[in-house]
Every structure is written in C-alpha cells, then in structure tokens.
Design a protein around this nucleic acid. Structure first.
Length: 391
DNA sequence: TCTGGGGTCCTAGGACCC
DNA sequence: TCTGGGGTCCTAGGACCC
C-alpha cells in the first residue's frame, strides 16, 4: 500500500526530488554585484533605484531607507532575513527594520535566463521535471540507477557549473515530503528521507510547513489545538472533515501521514493569463477618469499581447479591482467567440467594469483572460453552443 | 507609509437542461 | 401542493503558492 503505479504499471516506490534555488533573485544579483556579498540585500520595489555607476568604476547603491512607495520585498539575502526581512513584506516596513540594507530593483529577464540554465542543467541528468515557477522544480528520479546522495550532489554541481548558484534538494518518496525536505537544510543542503522517518523527522514540524496549509488553515488548526504535523496526524479524520469539509479534511489527514500520490507533470496548459497594476496613489473613478481609463486600456493591450505571444485565445474576460481599503472585487464575462484582440478585450472588460461599485478610490486594476484555447484550434466560428441557438 | 504581480484550485449558488 | 435529481456552465469570492 506504500507503493504507487508507475507508467509501466509496476509497483515500485517512487523517488521524487524537490530542488529549490537558494535566495534565487538575490543570489543572481550578487553574481552581478559581488562586492555586496555578505551584506543585507533586498530585491523589490519599482525599478527606480538602479545602482549608479560611479566615475571610479564602483556602484552607488540605494538603501532601504531611501525608498518611497508601495513596493514589497521580492527576495532578500540570508543576511537581510537575519534582520527580520522576508518576502512580501512592505518595503517601507522593512526599511524600519534595516534602513541601511541595500535595495536592488528586480530584473526578471535575468532571473528567467538563469532559470532556464539551471533547469537545462538538471534536465541533462534527470529529464523528468515538473516546473514549479522560476526558482524551483520537482524531479522524478525513480528511473535513474544511482544512489540518492551522489545523484543529489551531481545535480547540485551541474546547477552550480551552469549558473554559479547554489540550491537545496530534498529526495523522498513523493512531492509533498520532497517539498518539505528541500527546506530543512537551507542553503546549499541535501535532505534524504524515507517513509520510516516520517514520525521522527516530519511530525515534529509545524503544520504550516505543509504546502497548502496557509495562514487561515493554520489558524483554524490552532483553534483545534493542533500545531504540529504529528498532532494533525493524530487527529481523527472525522474531526478534520467536520471542521474543514470532506475534501480538505481528508487531504489534511493524508498529508499528515506523508501520503501524496500526485505524479510529476512535465507539461501543462495555462488556465489564465492576466495583468494587474497597483497605482502609486489611489485613483477616483470620476476625478481621475482619464488616468484610470488610460491604465485600463494599457492593461487590456498587455493581456492581448501576452495571449498573442503565447498563442492562445480566451472566451472569458474578467477584471479585478482593489479598493483603497484593500477589499477586492472581480467581475467576468464569457464571450460567444474567443478572442485575443485588444479592442475586444477592452470592450468586454469595460462591460465588467460597469457592474462594479465605483464610489471608493481604486488601488489596483487588473484584467484576466481565461477559458483559454490554442489560437491554432480556432477559426473564429461561433462555438457549437452558439450555432445551435434558435434564432 | 501597511500590504506586488502572476498564477492554481476550491466552493457555492443560480441558470438551464434532461 | 410542498414541489426530484443529476450534470454542466457561468459567475464571484477566497485561500494559497512562488
């Protein structure tokens, strides 16, 4: 029962790795600015704080205390984390904790480049890879005849040779445990774990270490007197179902026992493509109408551009607003025919906007395209549903 | 001076159909 | 006269992740 069916339909235990780049964005920046090594460095904010090249060839860097605006921390070096600065923290708040920390703007083109390189390096050793974003991957090592420790070392070396960057790897029987384990010995670590070690090494960990248990679920667990994964494992499944519903309750019970049979997905189709923008100041629908309208159109055109570049058309167009009080609302509309056209997207998004209250000032505006189809599959005929409609 | 941007998945109610 | 039941689509909101 501890085994899963592989593609060959034989029951062998899987060997799944999770690889996580160490402080990825910040580490890429340190490759470009090695003089910052050992310092508290923060990546984030709007790109108005580029380092300035001095006449003597050195760089003048912005400090956190100089930042003004609505940015958040994207990544920070381990030195900055030691000062209490973590991802998603407001920059203005982090400036209070570490005013002298160096602030660098995010350079996503460079990170994407390094991302491709580290993934290619891993693929040269282990090709069965699931993308988990720019800085992490799952790898199915089941079919590779090499012991886990030397294999992990070889993968880490390949990543370092290709990028100059370190990563941390967890190797376990499934994705859930691998994700937990890659975080246990960071940075530059390797963690191997077998099923028999779940009680001793997983159960003492906080429940929120499980991917999928966020702040809300953690708070509800705390109300039940559950803080660790072990306490979650000891809870009767009926009690969890009672608190969280059937789906979430049974899932919590399973993951606490280290059960996770999700396969490695080596490719997937996108479900939605979206763009959003937080304004530097909150805008009013009437007083700032021109500014708002221009931003709205620009966002729609960017979505259209993204659709075209990626080769998709969308049947559903939606908007997202965040008001000054941070409350968010969404509206969407499904079109009779899929589109990737900027004007049609702007038109549909405009219809959505009419259905939203606009007395409060607006902090954020976003546009989303969903129900995607490959552009090649479409000759812009009405869908079957439409053609069958009686006149 | 709080709180980015790009995603996925789940829930839930109503419409609509058989 | 207390009036099914299941399936799918559409819409809105929210939790969560990187």
């Amino acid at each position: 029962m501890l085994y899963i069916h592989t593609a060959m339909n034989t029951s062998i235990p899987r060997r799944i790795a999770h690889l996580d780049m160490d402080a990825f964005f910040a580490s890429v920046e340190l490759l470009h600015y090695p003089e910052l090594r050992g310092q508290a460095v923060v990546v984030g904010g709007r790109s108005v704080h580029q380092p300035v090249l001095q006449p003597d060839g050195s760089h003048r860097f912005s400090r956190l205390r100089d930042y003004v605006g609505r940015g958040v921390v994207t990544t920070s070096t381990y030195e900055a984390r030691a000062l209490g600065i973590f991802s998603a923290m407001g920059l203005m708040k982090s400036a209070q904790l570490a005013p002298e920390a160096i602030l660098l703007p995010a350079n996503f083109d460079a990170y994407r480049d390094y991302s491709r390189h580290f993934k290619a390096a891993v693929a040269s050793i282990a090709p069965c890879i699931e993308d988990r974003g720019i800085d992490e991957i799952f790898i199915d090592l089941s079919d590779i005849p090499e012991d886990s420790l030397p294999l992990a070392r070889r993968i880490k070396q390949a990543v370092f040779d290709a990028t100059g960057l370190t990563c941390s790897i967890g190797i376990t029987p499934n994705k859930l445990l691998a994700k937990i384990c890659s975080d246990l010995d960071k940075p530059d670590g390797i963690t191997l774990l077998g099923r028999d070690e779940i009680p001793s090494r997983i159960w003492p960990l906080a429940a929120k270490k499980i991917n999928g248990i966020g702040p809300k679920a953690n708070e509800r667990l705390a109300q039940m007197g559950i803080a660790t994964i072990g306490e979650l494992a000891a809870a009767p499944v009926e009690r969890l179902v009672c608190y969280f519903g059937r789906t979430m309750g049974t899932w919590l019970h399973e993951v606490a026992h280290g059960i996770d049979e999700r396969p490695i997905k080596t490719s997937r189709e996108p479900k939605s493509i979206s763009r959003e923008s937080t304004f530097q100041r909150d805008l009013h629908a009437k007083q700032d109408r021109a500014e708002l309208s221009e931003a709205f159109t620009s966002i729609c055109l960017r979505v259209a551009d993204d659709l075209a570049r990626k080769g998709y058309v969308a049947r559903t167009i939606g908007i997202k607003l965040r008001y000054a009080d941070f409350q968010a609302v969404t509206r969407d509309i499904t079109l009779p025919m899929p589109t990737a056209d900027g004007r049609e997207i702007r038109q549909a998004a405009g219809e959505c906007l009419k259905r939203v209250p606009l007395h409060q000032r607006i902090r954020l505006l976003g546009v989303r395209a969903s129900t995607l189809l490959p552009a090649t599959a479409i000759d812009r005929q009405p869908t079957a549903f439409q053609t069958e409609l009686p006149l």
